[in-house]
Every structure is written in structure tokens, then in C-alpha cells.
Design a protein around this nucleic acid. Sequence first.
DNA 1: GCATGATCATGC
DNA 2: GCATGATCATGC
Length: 489
Amino acid sequence: MEKRLLYDDNDPKSIEAYSKLLIGKTFEDVLLDYFSGNNLDMFEKKKSYYNNSRSKGGLGNLIEKYFFLYEPNGNPEADFPNAGVELKVTPYEQLKNGEYRAGERLVIGMIPNDKPLVENIYDSHVLDKLQLVLLILYLRRRGEPRITFQINYSKLFSILGKECSEDLSIIESDYNTIFKKISQGQAHELSEADTMYLGACTKGATANRSLQPQYYNPDIKAKRRAFSLKQGYMSYILNKYIFKDIDTYESIFKDTKLSREDFERNVIKRIMNFYGQSEEALKMHFGLSRDNSKNVFSRLAFRMLNIQSNNAEEFVKSDTIVKAIRIEKNGTIKESMSFPVIIFNEFINEEWEESYIYNYFSEKRFLFVIYRDNGNGYHLNDVKFWNMPTSDLDKAGKKEWLKVQMIVREGVELTPKGNRITNNFPKGSETEIFHLRPHANKSVYLIDGKIFGNGKLEKDADILPNGDMMTKQCFWLNKDYILAQLNKE
DNA sequence: GCATGATCATGC
DNA sequence: GCATGATCATGC
């Protein structure tokens, strides 16, 4: 088959039109179409090859070979050089609340470690690579064979289009931040969470093996990284411009083109307008006087920013999460900080650098809103952007995560003691960064067929590898660690 | 006293 | 109904 019969590879519109034939098809369908029932042996062979999640990038590769009918090449040219079109086959997911989000960041291209980095983004290849991208989106369903995932959208996308023009100044300042860190020989301290929309992500499970000397600092090795559009940013792009779900997000600053530094300054300024105000005064001011919810302190922070939830446009796009912290009279923090629950059966099969927790803390930025008890109740005291330093995540974080994973794999020891069930996970007092603790509505366990606790197994518990069930758990950021981070500067 | 295990109020 | 963002309170 001659590919020029199928589409004009000089013409982006023709490539896009042809790609729409994919809509509604699974990857298996694409293979079946190609082999047309003539070579079923080969079909089965390819099917099992592409079903293997170890063949990274495999689904994009499948589309190139068996739909566009060209051999994937590793060279830096565009996938369709004559049309200047980049092909990106990328997943999206549906959350339990029905919302959609990008399944992954969009990787743009490797950051060189053997030559200088171009200083200005407009002289670099970053924007070229995003100038014309054919986004082919498939719905990823966890636990299902990936060959059965269905392609539901195909659309040309440009970062230079009007829908993204508001974001270019932040993307430019993101690039400058990455350039600055690398050119100062600090590539080993880079974090995807240093920046808002354009990130420097590590490259999967191979990142540790890919430790290489830095061009600007040959004595200290750093992981190879790639430029990417962060997952949060892609979620926004998908929802707003592909799925056309216009009303999902509220923006903090309307119609402004801010650099990242200005955005952060303005956020801090808005919150600090309320500096020194007491809990009661703030609740009164925002009409939350009768709000007894445990998360009222973060809700107050949202109100100061004039938003309703963590779903504000700029925070979604930049993977930023607002967290309230309260400091006691004696200068300590009473509580550790909770995060979403883990699913044991996914957790035990993860590689650290592809794990939920690694990805979470490498890409999420936090806005800490700090209240302090001055002896007369909590008062707004400070606000600060924070992300976990790469060296913390790489060293103590990795070690502590691996320890928990080992315990779950080998079998958690659950011991009834009075009205409680104790376990052998490392405690907050035994860890530096995070520890595992319950995070559920009620506690409930199934141990050797016997139920403990008054929660509901199907709602409040999660299944362990040996079939026992344990109250749902999440990683908690240690309060001492948080305090040390706040006091760092 | 305080850390670990248990639990709560809310919004969507 | 359940995830989220938290604080409560038992047991050492």
C-alpha cells in the first residue's frame, strides 16, 4: 500500500482528515485493518507485542506503522516533515466524578546534556515542536489491556493558536527558569514542579540509569530530562479545546498575560491582603461563620483568592494545590498532611519513577496558606509556594516509599489492640518525609476472614495482596518535615 | 504528652 | 456516594 494514496503528507489538513478514520477504533482494530484477516498469525503476534506495557511509547509506534504506514524514526525532524506536523498519541482518563483529565504530560523533546542549552525559548525548538501537533487521544481504562483502548479524538493543536496565547508569557518564564538552573550547573536539582506549564520531566523508569554528567557541571551527574507540557496543562487543553467543556474552570486573574513570577506575586498579594486577620474575622467576612468543616481553613484561602475550590484554571493548568497549615503557639504543627489514598494492588506493581507518589510530588506545586496561633486563636500569618526538593524525593522519599512497598508485598502485620488495629508500617516518628496512615470514613479490616471495625469493607477498606482487607491508607507528609521546609529560608 | 490509628463535614 | 482536606482521641 502506498501511503500517498491515503493522505497528502505535505498537507496538515489532509493528515488530520485521514486521522479521523481512527475515531471509534481500538488499537486492536487498527492492527486488524492492517492485516485484513490475511495474516492472523502476525496479527496475534503484534497484538501481544503491543499489549506489553514495557514497550514504552508502543501505541504511538503502532499508529505510525500500521495506520500512517511509515517507519517511526528517532531523528529530531517532525514526524511528518513535509507538513511540519508532530504526531502525539496520548491517553486521557475519566475520573469517578465524570470529569476528564489528561493521562500523561506531553513530552516535547530531550533537553541536551552534552551541549549548551539555547537561552531564549524563541530560538529553541520547543515552540517549533508545538507549532503543529496532531493529538490523537485514546481513553485509558485502568486494569484493561491497552490494545483495547479506544481512540475518540484526533485534532490539530498549536501552542501558538489563540487559545494558548494567554499562556505564552508563563511558558516563556518557565523556560527561563529551567535554563537558569541548568546553566548554573544545578540540573540535578531540577524539578518538574519548579515551573507552571512547561516542565522538565524525567524520562520514566530509565531516569536513574540515565544519570549523565551535566554540560555546565560535569562533576555532578543529573537525570536526563525532557521538556514537556505538564499533565495539568494538558488536562486543561483537552477539556477546553478538544472536549469543548467550557465551564469547568474559573480563573483567578481574568484576561491577563502574566509571567510566572508575576502570577505568584499577585497570588501572594491577594492572600496577604488578609494578613493578621483572625479565624473568626475571616469566617465572618466570607460568610462562613457557621462552617464547622474540618477544611474550613483551606476554604478560607480559596475565598481570599476569589475561587470556590482547587479547580481554578491557573491551579489546574500548573498542577498547583492549595493547602492550609496551622502553626501552634509553641511554633509546632499539630497534624501531618494527607493526600489521596493509594490502591495496594497498583502500588505493589509500581516502579518508583513511574509511581503515583513519585509523579505526584515531582509535578505538583503547593500553595501553603499559613495560619498561626498567636495565643489568641489562629490568624493568617504567611503564604508560600512550595514543591518538594528533588534531592528529598530522590533520596529519603524513594527509600521510605520502597520500604512501605516491601511491607505490603511481603504482607502487612495487622494486630488488634483494644479498639484499634496496629500495623508494621514505618511511623511518622521513624521517617523523614512521609509515612502511611489510614484515610477513610470509618475503620474496617478483614483479617483471616474476620471483620474488625465499624466501617464498610467495600467503601472504607482496600484489598491487600494476601486477600485480607485494610482501612484505606494514604501517604502523609510528616509535620516535622513540613515545618522544616517552612523554616528553610 | 503525643503519635498513631480513627473519624468528620463538605461539595459535587 | 465518595473523594477531599482535614482534625479527633485512644492507648502507650
